[in-house]
Amino acid sequence: MAKGRVSKDEWTMAALRALARGGVAAVAVDVLAKELGVTRGSFYWHFENREALLVAALETWERHGTAEVIAAVKEVDDPLARARTLFAEALGDEEIAGLEPALAAQVDHPAVAAVVARVTRARLAFLEEVYTGLDFGPAAARHRALAAYAAYLGWLDLRRTAPDLAPEAQLRDPGSAAALDHLVDMILAPGAPGAPGDPGTGTGAVRE
């Protein structure tokens, strides 16, 4: 039977690809069934309705793109190596190109808004933890977490919206490695000891 040939995970990944292509409106059961080579009946084997598929897809993105990445990076003991591992993972190959900018543009949908909020909260909290491990005080760690996350989102948006104007953002471009190294160096640049706005005890000096 057709319903036995396609797993729930295959449906959710197809839904995420559709989200990257055209937002929530692109998550159409008949279109995805055709893409997967199955009948509409296969969909109802796994999901009650389209909204259930959308939620499952978003939760898959949340798990793969945030929870699993954080868990893996936490295994790295050295604080500076942990930070570099995080940014290398975040700025490297995208499992589904353009998905994150596409989701950011769809936060008017309640299901998308809820998951994007959870993901943003978790990522910022972990970035603060990473910077705290680099001896930044609370305020500086928060500010750097915000700046680093903004740089991350902007980099992905450049890949999606300006591939010709900013080719270095594309991983296959000859200049991408140098551009990424420069971005990470900026994100991790040490701060001046006792810098204004940092009431914490950390000096903001990245350990070498």
Rank of each mutant, 00 (worst) to 15 (best):
K3G: 14
G4A: 07
G4Y: 13
V6N: 06
K8L: 07
D9Q: 14
W11E: 05
A15K: 02
L16M: 03
L16A: 01
R17Y: 06
R17V: 00
A18M: 04
A25T: 10
A25Q: 11
L32Y: 01
L32W: 03
L32T: 04
K34M: 13
K34W: 06
G37A: 05
V38A: 02
F43K: 00
F47S: 09
N49A: 09
E51G: 03
L53N: 02
L53H: 02
L53G: 01
L54K: 00
A56R: 01
L58A: 01
T60R: 04
T60N: 03
T60Q: 08
W61I: 08
R63Q: 06
H64R: 06
G65L: 00
V69E: 01
A72R: 11
D78W: 06
L80A: 15
R82N: 10
R82V: 03
R84C: 07
T85C: 11
L86Q: 03
F87Y: 10
F87G: 09
A90F: 13
L91K: 06
G92S: 08
D93L: 14
D93H: 12
E95G: 15
I96V: 14
A97W: 13
G98P: 13
E100I: 12
L103F: 13
Q106C: 14
Q106F: 11
D108A: 08
H109G: 12
P110R: 07
P110L: 08
P110N: 08
A113R: 12
A114Y: 09
V115S: 04
V116P: 09
A117P: 13
R118F: 10
R118D: 11
V119N: 07
V119P: 10
T120F: 06
R121A: 12
R123A: 04
L124T: 10
E128T: 04
E129G: 03
V130Y: 00
V130A: 00
V130M: 01
Y131T: 03
T132S: 08
G133S: 07
L134S: 01
L134W: 02
G137L: 01
G137Q: 03
P138L: 03
A139D: 14
A140L: 07
R144T: 12
A145G: 13
L146A: 15
A148G: 13
Y149T: 14
Y149L: 12
Y149G: 13
L156Q: 06
L158H: 05
R159H: 03
R160N: 05
A162M: 02
A162L: 02
D164I: 00
A166D: 00
A166R: 00
A166V: 05
A166G: 01
A166I: 02
E168P: 02
A169S: 06
Q170T: 05
Q170V: 02
Q170F: 01
L171S: 08
A177T: 15
A178E: 15
L180T: 14
L180M: 14
L180Y: 12
M186L: 13
I187R: 01
L188S: 02
A189W: 09
G191I: 06
A192Q: 12
A192D: 15
A195L: 10
G197F: 05
D198T: 04
P199K: 10
P199E: 15
T203K: 07
T203P: 04
G204A: 09
G204N: 09
V206P: 05
E208C: 13
